[in-house]
């Protein structure tokens, strides 16, 4: 709140584009991770990272445009991410019970 009261606004200091670059960079790091890593749990984390990049972008747009819809969208993304993480981890646990491993490359019984 204090920031607001002083009339501070981030975009007076930092251009919006820097925030966007930051979030795009995060997104691409996450994407790289998804392509590069094979451990399912790390893949899951990379996807979370991508989602956070999206969130950051939404929030910066929302602040910049002075429109609250973007922030609400972020709220829903967080909600869904939580649900997704729960299901994903449950799947991982059930895989682990079978194979004692979470490495995706061990699961190559089905060939493309």
């Amino acid at each position: 709140m204090s920031l607001l009261e002083t009339g501070f606004h981030i975009f007076d200091k930092v251009g919006i584009s820097n925030y966007l670059f930051l979030s795009v960079l995060l997104f691409c790091i996450g994407l790289f991770g998804v392509l590069y890593r094979r451990n399912a749990i790390i893949l899951l984390m990379c996807i979370e990272l991508m989602l956070n990049a999206v969130n950051l972008m939404f929030v910066s747009f929302s602040s910049y445009l002075g429109d609250s819809n973007g922030q609400l969208f972020v709220f829903f993304i967080m909600v869904v991410a939580a649900a997704e993480a729960a299901v994903g981890l449950a799947i991982l646990v059930s895989i682990y019970r079978n194979t004692r491993n979470t490495d995706v490359s061990f699961l190559d019984n089905l060939k493309g």
């Binding site: 709140m1 981030i10 749990i41 984390m45 969130n55 922030q71 967080m78 939580a82 993480a85």
Partner: peptide, 23 residues
């Protein structure tokens, strides 16, 4: 910094607090 205090809190609670602990 972006004046999104609510999301900042939710982010800490949900992500750092819940999801990551789950991980």
């Amino acid at each position: 910094m972006l004046n999104a205090q609510f999301l900042a809190i939710v982010n800490i609670i949900v992500y750092a607090g819940a999801i990551m602990v789950l991980f």
